[in-house]
Design a protein around this nucleic acid. Structure first.
Lengths: 205, 205
DNA sequence: TGGTGATATAAACATCGTTCAGATTGATGA
DNA sequence: TCATCAATCTGAACGATGTTTATATCACCA
């Protein structure tokens, strides 16, 4: 409810207000429920105002995607390390899927290549930094030297590990647990019970 | 180019023509490029005509999603079995990702929960039948008895295997190979070289 | 104090999905 | 055979969307 009532003709910090309002809309109604006009209205501004701060809808959504990758990275990079490679890799995977389950709208956003600008270097950098600890865990488990982060390249082992978590995340936000796994609570129960056993099957000790 | 010129006022088989035209649009321009009006125009019919055959855009796209699952199933279920469980599982996974890479628009469609009706029992049935041989291969590799197909339940092992392929498929159609793996040809080269080694890391002999 | 660039408005435009009254036609039954 | 009816299609309309344009307002600085 960031419908800011403002006194002056100019907003003051419309750019930040638009990002805030848009993220709220996406959290509440998903990417599909988002419209630029809604965001403008929520920020208390006319439909044409956003064009002065973002290059269209795609620019605004890209800014939110960057914030989302930063949130994901903050989540993953602070997960505790046990010293047991298999367990750490599972922890990272679980964290990845949990993030998707807790923020389905935002996670969908960062997968929508048509809605955000993946040529934006800031977006790419945020995406890679988000996966830093994940790559570290994969390197420890599979026994390889992590590549230079500057090169922005993933190893096949990392691709394998990341793909499993990525696929599970998609399956979760696509609502497949409720459809496929007979779990009463589509998010909580699945994550706490079925998901660990799935990851155990994928990366055993 | 199925812009059928018709002589009579009535079309004859508009339902099939709309499905055909829509699938062509999705193949050429992706789900994002699809509009109901385009499909109607391509079928040589007014924008209001489709409503007599489908319950809105979602109904039409659901019909195409069912066809897509049938195509995927026809692909996977005819893949040869080598008798070596690990290799067969990799073959299924490779087939799954290949399908996504060859039909990115259609694959994206069957993942768009907001665009198609996953409560449609025909869609669910088609989705499960498509994965039948995959589940069979997973059961052989992980050593469990495949569950009753009627129950429409996947085992954790199957979820693990499927998730990896599903995640790789998403990564491929999101264009990540070109971004992450330094492959000149984003589809062909990646699939033929990097992908098998990724699947080898996931399901070793 | 004036003026200039940045920022906002309001109105317009094309396009979208959907609805609805009316036109057209194929099929049914007497 | 022919009248009737339900199915099918048109064409115009509606509200909503993203974007552009001319115009209005204001913050800041010379």
């Amino acid at each position: 409810m960031s419908t800011a009532t403002r006194s002056s003709y100019h907003h003051g910090d419309l750019k930040a207000a638009l990002i805030e309002a848009s993220e709220e809309i996406i959290r509440a109604e998903g990417v599909e429920g988002f419209t630029l006009r809604k965001a403008a209205k929520s920020a208390g501004v006319s439909p044409g105002a956003p064009s002065h701060h973002f290059s269209g809808t795609k620019g605004l959504l890209t800014a939110i995607a960057i914030r989302t990758f930063e949130k994901l990275g903050a989540e993953l990079n602070t997960l505790p390390s046990s010293g047991i490679p298999a367990q750490d890799l599972r922890t990272q995977g679980l964290g990845y899927v949990k993030f998707a389950a807790l923020h389905p709208g935002l996670f969908r956003l960062i997968c929508r290549v048509d809605l955000i600008d993946f040529k934006d270097p800031n977006l790419m950098q945020a995406a890679f930094e988000a996966m830093a600890s994940y790559e570290h865990a994969a390197a420890a488990y599979f026994g390889y030297e992590p590549p230079d982060p500057q090169k922005r390249i993933f190893r096949p082992y990392m691709a394998s590990a990341m793909a499993t978590a990525h696929g599970l995340a998609h399956m979760v936000i696509e609502g497949r647990p409720a459809l496929l796994f007979e779990t009463p609570d589509p998010i909580g129960t699945f994550i706490e019970t079925a998901l660990p056993s799935i990851l155990l099957a994928t990366w055993p000790d």
